[in-house]
Design a protein around this nucleic acid. Structure first.
Lengths: 336, 336
DNA sequence: TTGTAGGCGTTATCAA
DNA sequence: TTGATAACGCCTACAA
């Protein structure tokens, strides 16, 4: 079962067996000996102990991933990218989830540090809340002090390498595209006040419209949770008003889908009575009718990019990988 | 950084430091010493090395999960259950993916064996193909010989503990429910010929109808991939025919959604022109219109159940956890 | 209750 | 090229 058994069976020393099996760089084993070792290993069904190897080598072969909810298509697509990139690099992925509680991120990083994961990818967007970020920052500094590397997906606010989604550009492009289709009155389901991704999209959308001479009334910039339910609630609140915008922009697709549910519930038709747009282009949209206008974010690629960033040679300065977005116009915003 | 450092800092032996920090069962450390050790650990920002602990203890704290595609809502929901159960048990999840290639399962189990994962959960259904299963069976036997435990989700064909979904019952219930709504002509998008889950659903559906005196013509039992595209292709083929059934049963929701796409493409309305039903009740359905009739499979619970099964005390005989299913009638099958 | 020391399975250094 | 042997960081009899 152990390498010693293999060595004995092959009649060589432990060291030789080790070299024969992992093909250590400069050290070469005579062909016939290697054959014997390999044969012995096969015969004994030897399986190297990754933990022991990790100890001896001083590094593991695993990379950690932190998400809020793996069942959310946003995160599961990113996870698909991470697993693919890790696989290519010969690494395993340790999946951890906050179960929607951002304050657990720091604890998960600590956990991953104990595993001595080589790198960690954190997939949730940041909040504009120094206290909330402080714990995570400490955990990350700690982790990096131990030799681990980190990549964030979202905003580069923690001094570590980050895959930055061009939210502002995407939201502005979307605003212009909708304006181009003739819309002149807008509402925004804006997500949590302090959620940076939500904020970037919200504000860029508003500002781009302002440049075109269209103002969104404050009452039509609603806040709420970054979830399906959050979108649903916000939409319901919006539709309770006397007046109604021509088009609603939800700062992510999941919220937009919640808004769609709410609209249907109260008998408001999309896009006949009100148009709707989201952000992310999650895979779920493939099956949604009417097709939802959105801004495509290449989620799988982002997972890959983050993994590669985290696995790259350490660098002194903070690296940023910018990811472009692309407006995708569909039936939910046919135009006026 | 290491426990020795902590021990030195606290002025105690390595053993005492170890006991103070992990609170080893029967051995008790005097309060003041424990305090000192804990203080030293905190001061030095000590983080136990999980790999070293694993070596010394002879067991790791991780559990492996094998899926075909983490971005598929079916698997990501199961993964959510697995992570939740693992979290509760104080374990980490190592996520591995075959990227849709079932023949990679055996290799992933070998990998997990090298990691000395405590338990492995395999989430893909089995095929009726002894050759294909042989490799996996060998890998699993090997893994279990090394002390690992396994839980399968699907069919109990490999001699290991399995979470068994009552596919036959669900499909039969669905058949009866549709028959009860007045449908008398049916087609089945049946998935891969040898895929056991697909087969169970397909055959039980057909048999239940036969008992009610309704026969499905062979030409209307189509095979194809177990995917969105598979459903789309099969539906397209079906709709090319001169005649058309009243209702189509796709053996899983992802295929049903593909079928929906195909129907829309060729201008066939669901449910006005043709009714449609799926199986699984994946979370995506929440946002699909018309609401898709399906058979609910509690995916998150299955993930939890499989994890608990894999973590349970070893047993000599094969354990099966049966999971009930439930027909959910929605607008896609309003009845005749 | 505390400390000493051996062992977990590999890798890697250093002689031979 | 091969083989002893000392790490790697921790746990746990066994002794004190």
């Amino acid at each position: 079962m152990t390498l010693s058994d293999v060595a004995r069976e092959a009649g060589v020393s432990l060291a030789t067996a080790s070299r024969a099996i992992n093909g250590s760089a400069n050290r070469v084993v005579r062909a016939d000996l290697r054959e014997r070792v390999l044969a012995a290993a096969a015969k004994l069904r030897y399986s190297p102990d990754a933990n022991a190897q990790a100890m001896a080598r001083g590094r593991t072969t695993s990379i950690g991933l932190v998400v809020h909810d793996i069942a959310d298509p946003f995160f599961s697509s990113i996870a698909a990218g991470v697993t693919r990139a890790a696989d290519r690099a010969g690494l395993q992925v340790t999946l951890t989830s906050t179960q929607h509680d951002p304050s657990r991120e720091a604890g998960l990083v600590d956990l991953l540090k104990r595993q001595r994961a080589r790198a960690v990818v954190i997939a949730g967007g940041r909040m504009d809340d120094e206290d909330a970020n402080a714990d995570l920052r400490t955990a990350l500094d700690d982790y990096r002090a131990g030799g681990g590397s980190v990549a964030l997906i979202g905003q580069p606010v923690l001094g570590v390498d980050t895959v930055v989604v061009d939210n502002a550009r995407g939201a502005a492009d979307l605003a212009r595209a909708l304006h181009g289709r003739g819309y002149r009155s807008f509402a925004v389901l804006g997500g949590p006040e302090q959620h940076l991704t939500a904020r970037e999209r919200r504000e860029a959308f508003r500002d781009a419209l302002a440049e075109l001479g269209t103002t969104i009334p404050d009452a039509w910039i609603l806040t709420g949770a970054f979830t399906h339910e959050g979108g649903e609630d916000a939409m319901r609140a919006l539709l309770r008003g006397d007046d109604r915008p021509q088009v609603v922009f939800a700062v992510n697709d999941v919220m937009a889908l919640g808004a769609l549910t709410a609209a249907r519930d109260v008998g408001v038709r999309v896009p006949d009575d009100i148009a709707l747009a989201g952000f992310d282009d999650i895979s779920t949209l493939r099956d949604v009718v009417p097709g939802l206008t959105t801004v495509r974010v290449p989620l799988v690629d982002i997972g890959i990019a983050a993994t590669e960033l985290a696995l790259a040679d350490p660098s002194d300065d903070v690296r940023l990988t910018h990811v472009p977005t692309q407006v995708v116009l569909r039936e939910s915003t046919p135009g006026i």
